[in-house]
C-alpha cells in the first residue's frame, strides 16, 4: 500500500496537468470535453480505505476546480463518484472476488469487466458534473447529449491509458 504512494502521487500530478493544460483547451464543437482525471479514482487499489477514497477524490476535484475557476463543481462530482465506487465494485465483482496484490485494471480482470466498471463510474461522474453545472433540468436533452458524448471520449481515453500501464508496471 505505502510503496504505491509515489506512483499515485505522480499520476495525480500528471493527470491534473493533462486535464488542465491540454484537455480543457480542446473543445470539439462546444459539446465535448473529456475529463480524464477521473482515471485516478478508477485506478486506486481495492484495499484503499473508504475515507481515504473520499479525501483523495475531494483533493483531486478541488485541484481541477481551482484551475478552471469553478470551485465545488468537479469536487462534488468526483466525491460522489468515489462514494459509489465501493458499491459498484461489489455489484460487478467476479465470482471469486478480488485477489490481493491486484489492481482494478484491464490486465487483471479483462476488458469485459473493466469496461463495465469504467463506463458506470464515468457516466455517474459526468452526469453529476454536467447537471450540477446547469443546476436545472429544463434543457434536459441538450445536457444529456453533452454527458453521453463527453463520456464516450473519456472512456476511450481511459481505455487507451490501460495499454500504457501494461508496459511499465509489470512486476
Amino acid at each position: 500500500m505505502i510503496k504505491l504512494f509515489p506512483r499515485y502521487l505522480a499520476s495525480f500530478i500528471l493527470l491534473v496537468f493533462l486535464q488542465v493544460f491540454i484537455l480543457n483547451n480542446i473543445q470539439f464543437s462546444g459539446y465535448i470535453n473529456p475529463y480524464i482525471y477521473v482515471l485516478l479514482i478508477l485506478a486506486l487499489p481495492f484495499e484503499t480505505p473508504k475515507w481515504l477514497l473520499l479525501i483523495i477524490a475531494f483533493t483531486l476535484g478541488l485541484t481541477i476546480d481551482l484551475f478552471s475557476g469553478t470551485v465545488g463543481m468537479h469536487s462534488s462530482a468526483t466525491v460522489f463518484m468515489a462514494f459509489l465506487r465501493p458499491y459498484i465494485l461489489k455489484v460487478i465483482s467476479p465470482r471469486d472476488g478480488y485477489e490481493s496484490e491486484t489492481l482494478p485494471q484491464l490486465r487483471y480482470y479483462g476488458a469485459n469487466w473493466f469496461i463495465r466498471y469504467a463506463v458506470i463510474l464515468i457516466l455517474v461522474h459526468h452526469f453529476f458534473l454536467f447537471f450540477i453545472e446547469v443546476l436545472r433540468f429544463s434543457d434536459f436533452f441538450a445536457t444529456f447529449a453533452r454527458v453521453v458524448l463527453s463520456s464516450i471520449f473519456t472512456i476511450i481515453l481511459v481505455l487507451i491509458s490501460q495499454y500504457f500501464y501494461r508496459k511499465d508496471t509489470r512486476r
Partner: peptide, 9 residues
Amino acid sequence: IEVFSIYLL
C-alpha cells in the same frame, strides 16, 4: 464533503 463542495459551488 459533498455538502461542503456544494456550499462552495
